[in-house]
Design a protein around this nucleic acid. Structure first.
Lengths: 339, 339
DNA sequence: CCAGGTTTTGGGAACGTTCACAGTTGGTTT
DNA sequence: AAACCAACTGTGAACGTTCCCAAAACCTGG
């Protein structure tokens, strides 16, 4: 019971544990790292000594010799505002934190919105401070991806990394199939003039969901029925207004995100159109907002839990030396009141 | 080929830089850490060598000898759901990330919602993986605070740390003064039956904002005019319903958060009461939601930018060995359409 | 031009861990 | 019973920094 009153309470090292347990450094190290080749009696002695001394391994020392950082970075390349407005990001962030914690890996949160930030972040990552990177929402042409690839830093993106398929691992919802299921649903409801509000076309979600829409509609997907949004509420409003001007006879809209759909909804209602009576409205994501709009939004659920789990798994595989892989996860149609 | 960083192309060490610059390790180290006692010519040679080799200091080695982690943890003790529903958290998180990045410090995001999580986080922090902790929203009696204090880990809380005043550093909005300004504003609008929906009374915001309400109303703060919420939208709805039952003649409500106010607003409107005509409604936070409700919410702005900046400053002071201090920051009344 | 001081420099010694390897057990096979 | 093999254990050598101290170089003033 050495003086634990003083501020300068030295942290116990592996030597202290070894002495306490009456074994050597090496045995303690082995006991604590999987316990291979350690006799039961030694193992128990070490464990007891650890409990008694309150020993926790010094991660700096460990990292120094193992050449591993034992941490993972979560990097957001979107403009800052997105983190607030788009609920998907906080869901992903929260799930990743949790999932990594299960593996006893801390998550470093970094942003790379501005050019200055990207440089700093890139430099930091290149310095080997982390073992891998979870990269969220890469617009195509994001220089950070190239930099990470170049420095040979394991990276998994959320959503197909446009322009890096095959090189960079990723986990994503099957956006295209999800979009198809929604558009089919709208048709089954008897709608014939089905419009769409897309996401940005330099994002996988933007491209894939539009592709799914086209898969189902074929030649019916007239240019007048397609407007582009930017995943923000305001963008959804603007696109909806545009659609109403271009195709006043539309009777359904498939919107590539719930947040944009919420914006579209207010525009429709302000225009005196009843949802779903006059216009059926379908969203994407099944974010919290979908159940709070009136009417509640029919949408396509992204399996964020699984996406996150897969991202982490893929990254850990990558860190362990496996080649980059991909996971495409099924979505689920959630029918509420807007269709 | 696994292609791990370091196998194919070894990262340059300080030795490589020293050799390249034609000086010793020590000189390189000095040159890179402030440049004290280094001749201009040596300094320039080192800088050139660093540029040429692309050297970046190995943080593990540095941490090992300096006994500093060179990173800061951001710990959320609230239930997970809060991170999504309450926009304040993401604002704080984003601002802290940014502010710390300016100091070249990475932010480790950790949660301590469940008991298991708290233990893991506590253990991790006690292991010295970080130099300090930014702790967000500590309900009173949060064991994590005690543990951090006991382990002598620098910590700054956001909001007054109930039960730890004077021991733990903190930055907070002047909740009490902010509440006063709102209640005075409601009185100036001619309201006489001013009710309040509080936050949880085991949180500083809950306690202080109620105190400010009482400061202004004195004996007029009848128990029938006070209901308690939990900072969620649903909680705001429930509390508003309770108030309407207890005090049907109320003509104003000061709600301790915008999110709860948004909930209260729908309850009022569903009850056929017009806002602000029949009932004036004041929120707190000035979160994004305040400007999207109809009518837009009069509220009290929390100076999150400054709070964040102060939290980081206080924490870095603490890490540098200064005693714990506190920062109480002024709020601002934002008048919109609901009062 | 030398004594005394200041600035600059080099290199040994940590920091706390893991790893490789050699050595020591104890048990089985021939 | 010798010989072998497996399981276990201890120890020296890294890992890449910073810190410290002594030595070297450079000044200054008498």
């Amino acid at each position: 019971m050495t003086g634990r009153l003083g501020k300068s309470r030295a942290r116990p090292t592996i030597h202290d544990v070894a002495a306490e347990a009456g074994v050597s450094r090496g045995t303690v190290s082995r006991a604590l790292n999987g316990g291979r080749n350690v006799s039961p009696v030694a193992l128990e002695a070490v464990l007891a000594a650890v409990r008694k001394t309150g020993y926790v391994a010094n991660s700096a020392a460990r990292s120094l010799v193992t050449q591993r950082a034992h941490s993972i970075a979560f990097v957001l390349t979107e403009p800052q505002s997105r983190l607030f407005e788009d609920p998907n990001f906080s869901i992903l962030l929260q799930a990743c934190t949790q999932e990594l914690a299960e593996h006893d890996l801390p998550l470093l949160l970094m942003t790379a919105s501005s050019d200055v930030e990207r440089k700093r972040t890139s430099r930091f990552l290149a310095a080997g401070h982390v073992d891998g990177v979870l990269l969220v929402s890469s617009h195509t042409g994001n220089p950070l991806v190239d930099e990470l690839v170049q420095f040979d830093i394991p990276v998994v993106t959320c959503g197909k990394p446009l322009g890096h398929e095959g090189v960079v691992a990723y986990a994503a919802a099957d956006d295209r199939a999800g979009a198809r299921s929604m558009v089919r649903h709208l048709r089954e409801r008897g709608r014939t003039r089905i419009a769409t509000i897309t996401g940005p076309l330099d994002t996988p979600g933007g491209v894939e969901r539009l592709a799914g829409y086209r898969d189902v509609l074929g030649a019916d997907a007239a240019p007048a029925l397609i407007a582009h949004g930017d995943y923000t509420r305001a963008g959804g409003e603007a696109a909806m207004a545009e659609l109403l001007a271009k195709a006043p006879d539309l009777d359904a809209v498939f919107v590539a995100s719930d947040l944009m759909a919420a914006g579209a909804l207010t525009v429709l209602q302000d225009a005196g159109l009843r949802v779903p009576r006059d216009v059926a409205l379908g969203g994407f994501d099944d974010s919290g907002i979908a159940s709070t709009t009136r009417p509640a939004l029919t949408t396509v659920r992204q399996p964020f839990e699984r996406i996150t789990r897969e991202m982490v798994r893929l990254l850990l595989d990558l860190v362990a030396g496996l080649p980059p892989a991909a996971a495409l996860l099924p979505t689920e149609l959630v029918v509420r009141d807007s269709t």
